[in-house]
Amino acid sequence: MLLSQTTRAATGAPLPPRRRRRIILSGSRGESLTGLGMAAPALILLALFILVPAILAFVLAFTNAQLISPNPIQFTGLTNFIQLFHDPVFYRSLLNTLYFAAVVVPVQAGAALVMAVLVNTKTRGTSFFRTIYFLPVVTSMVVVSMLWLFMYQQHGLINQVIHQLSFGLVTGPDWLNNPATSMPAIILMSVWQGVGFHMIIWLSGLQTIAPDLYEAASLDGVTSWQRFRYVTWPGLRNTRALVLVTITIQALSLFTQVSVMTQGGPLYSTTTMVYEAVQTGYQQQQTSYASAISLVFFALVLIVAAVQRFLTREKA
């Protein structure tokens, strides 16, 4: 991911020459220990509460463990994975997860950037608009999902608005009950909820672009598109990586919205991998099968992150 880039930037100073290094070795060893000591609380907590359960999930994927069962657990090798790769619902959830991410990542990043450009001024009311755009971010996803569930109903607020705005010509669909519109509806709501956060991150990038670049550009009399294309966009290189990674991870983990609004339906059109893992793990009590889904999910996220890193690196 973007991590090693930044670390490299962090430790950007050229390595000290060998000789010097050897002289301060003992000191640096003490420094290393002290440093590890300061990092220890975070490392220990992460190990205890993420690493241990993750390893457990990993092991469970190769067993027949059930959520509720009096039977002893046995290792069953790859059985769960074989079953998984013969399960059409699994492929559907994989596809839905990628579909959601493929739309949300560019749309949310793009909308956030447009909004960031809009509010990156010193005009009056700017901070008012920033606040408004940030409101959904501070509202819980469960609450937001319930609210939109209500608004997406066949005769709900959104369809009423569509009806009124089109002077009665357009009747909105039954958003969450139509396999063609259910995922777009969840996408729209998710972007609405999350876009404010990424607007703020873009804003931070915009404010770090050196002012003289803009001045030079305006002396050359470039159009505003050219200014964006040749000054702003390259200046946002590192911000892009951060926005990309955070939205991608958030998008691939889609769960709450689906759980509250559609329970994966209709016709599996909103079943995602995390939802499927939770559904099979808790409701259907197939702990080991759910763990297998989770494992495949981790692998997917790693692959996507690696691909993204590769792509962003090439352009850089």
Partner: peptide, 25 residues
């Protein structure tokens, strides 16, 4: 700020925990 052996790996490992959604754990 500090010189720590393997700190790049440590940081990578820390960031890697971001990929694990809580629901699955």
């Amino acid at each position: 700020r500090m010189r720590i052996r393997g700190k790049r790996i440590i940081l990578t490992l820390i960031i890697a925990t971001l990929i694990v959604p809580f629901e699955t754990l």
